[in-house]
């Protein structure tokens, strides 16, 4: 298993097409892991780019730590990871909380980020944000029970349930993850978000509770474009092809030139909404 030892944490990393000229780093969401990209979206992008996937600390096969789930610590990790892999600059894509990590990265280290893609990044000031994540995790468990835990398979089904249960127990009860996320409430109002200079793609599921968060970001980030895809908060799992194609279109060299040639295309705007 490819692991990279960083100053603060050991991370599980997977790379596709390591020889690619430009790099995209993809950040998964809370209670998930790099597998959310690995089987569909990452191979599509690997046709053009070096793709770097990693498990966040406390998730997947990365090291388990009790603290440091706030956006500053998470972006310190990502910065260290880029240094360790010798990546000077990369496009970033992040899903859900990983989207907030990508935004924070662009705000803190703008020179290290090429284009920015945010999928279903929730506004942390919304009371519902944590509720959405809780619902997501419950649905996740119910999915397992319904699909895999029939009576003849109880033992092995139990293994997956217990594995997931252990992860939630660990993250909720033994780490600072909840308070770290709550401490990020004002993040969308941070002037550094409105100052993000990067070309930014916002992809949200049209039936997702997070669409208003996407609209907020679209109104604040000067060079952002919002795209709605069929699905809800789980859109990368529901429509990996659609998400992969949107990212491919957005990141491929020449995209920007095309935009600028097209008279109807959206141009970078002055900040029109405060």
């Amino acid at each position: 298993m490819p692991v990279i030892d960083l100053p603060n944490i050991r991370l599980h990393v997977q790379e596709l097409n390591p020889g690619g000229r430009e790099t995209i780093i993809m950040v998964h969401g809370m209670f998930s892991n790099l597998a959310v990209y690995y089987f569909n979206i990452a191979p599509m992008l690997a046709k053009h780019f070096r793709v770097v996937l990693f498990d966040m600390k406390g998730h997947g096969m990365s090291g388990k730590v009790k603290t440091g789930y706030d956006l500053t610590s998470m972006t310190n990790d990502l910065h260290d990871l880029m240094d360790a892999l010798g990546i000077e600059k990369a496009h970033l894509a992040g899903y859900s909380y990983g989207g907030l990590v990508a935004l924070k990265m662009a705000a803190r280290f703008p020179e290290r980020v090429g284009k920015l893609a945010i999928i279903e990044g929730p506004d942390p000031s919304e009371q519902e944000t944590l509720a959405i994540i809780d619902t997501y995790s419950k649905e996740f468990l119910i999915h397992y029970i319904e699909n895999f835990a029939d009576t003849t398979r109880l033992l092995a089904g139990k293994r997956q349930l217990e594995k997931n249960h252990r992860m939630y127990e660990f993250l909720f009860n033994e780490t600072s993850i909840r308070s770290d996320m709550e401490a990020e409430k004002a993040f969308f109002n941070d002037p550094s978000v409105a100052a993000i200079p990067h070309e930014t793609l916002l992809i949200y599921g049209e039936d997702s509770n997070c669409v208003p968060s996407g609209r907020t970001l679209a109104s604040r980030i000067p060079n952002a474009k919002l795209v709605l895809a069929p699905g809800d908060h789980n859109v990368p799992v529901q429509q990996p092809e659609v998400i992969g194609k949107e990212l491919e279109k957005f990141l491929k060299p020449g995209h920007r030139r095309l935009l600028e040639k097209h008279p109807g295309a959206r141009r970078p705007r002055p900040t029109e909404i405060d």
Binding site: M1, P2, Q14, N33, A35, M61, A156
Partner: peptide, 17 residues
């Protein structure tokens, strides 16, 4: 993989590797 062996996606990633 999923029904009989009950492997989840990150386990299939480790297996693929």
């Amino acid at each position: 993989f999923t029904k009989d062996l009950e492997m989840d996606s990150i386990e299939i990633v480790a297996f693929s590797e």
